[in-house]
């Protein structure tokens, strides 16, 4: 097993006729938190969707744990440990919180109640709010609770690589802090995290390594602290100060 869990090489993806990402290269080391920051439309979500297999690769490659994903179907990718909490949460509004969490374990071979029990316990310990709402229909949850549900659901697959798409979107500052603390905790429990964020200030504080994406290309990279102190990043993404 290599110590790079995910390796993106010269990846280009089209969205219709438009080039959404162009020749991007980056890697996610085992056990780390890596973040892709950038403005709306920079291609961050497209990158995550492509890793999960929802968008077609035009050129380049995605290598996960030494395996080229080119011919691996989206459901297989979940099976081998790549799990995503999508942008806008993407929870199933008509299912209960419990059913949503069970959906997270959809591809697992062992789905018996006893096999899922430790995962339920882990998720509900991380997000006690979900425990309180376990029988509630997910469409009636608040935005923050839906975000917790989306992350919790992704964890139910027991991922090695957790892809998080804008977990802070639309949340109050207090709640953002709470969510980011939990992401750190998930990482400390051994899950590698690739985080896509517009909220650069929070993401850079958390990330071991960061890449800045502008109109489909990576224009800067460095440790979280390096990018946070980069004058151009500060000017464009951090409003001058943290």
């Amino acid at each position: 097993m290599s110590d790079v869990l995910l390796e993106i090489r010269d990846l280009s993806v089209n969205y219709g006729h438009i080039e959404a990402i162009r020749d991007i290269t980056f890697e996610v080391p085992q056990g780390s938190i890596v973040t892709l920051i950038g403005a709306n439309g920079a291609g961050k979500s497209t990158t995550l969707k492509t890793i999960s297999g929802l968008r077609k690769v035009r050129a380049g490659s995605i290598v996960y744990d030494g395996q080229d994903l080119a011919k691996v179907s989206p459901d297989k990718r979940v099976q081998i440990g790549i799990s995503q909490a999508p942008e806008g949460r993407g929870i199933f509004p008509g299912m209960t919180v419990r059913e949503n969490l069970e959906m997270g374990a959809y591809v697992r071979r062992d789905r018996s109640a006893s096999a899922l029990a430790p995962d339920f316990e882990r998720v509900l310990t991380l997000f006690p709010r979900l425990d309180e709402r376990i029988k509630q229909v997910a469409g009636t949850l608040s935005g923050g609770e839906q975000q917790m549900l989306a992350i919790g659901r992704a964890l139910m697959a027991r991922p090695r690589l957790l892809l998080l798409d804008e977990p802070s979107m639309g949340l109050a500052p207090m709640l953002i802090k709470q969510i980011f603390t939990i992401i750190e905790e998930i990482n400390e429990q051994g899950t590698t995290v690739l985080l896509v964020e517009q909220n650069a200030a929070q993401a850079l504080k958390l990330a071991h390594y960061a890449y800045l994406l502008e109109t489909g290309e990576i224009v800067r990279s460095g440790t979280g602290a390096e990018l946070a102190n980069d004058p151009s990043v500060r000017a464009a993404y951090l409003g001058g100060d943290i």
């Binding site: 999960s52 929802l54 459901d75 979940v78």
Partner: peptide, 23 residues
């Protein structure tokens, strides 16, 4: 059933269903 839940997942949010590994 699990397959039934897969059907409901695709009906409610096809992209999320794919992300959960629903074929």
């Amino acid at each position: 059933t699990r397959l039934g839940r897969g059907i409901r997942a695709v009906a409610q949010d096809p992209e999320s269903a794919s992300l959960m590994g629903v074929n």
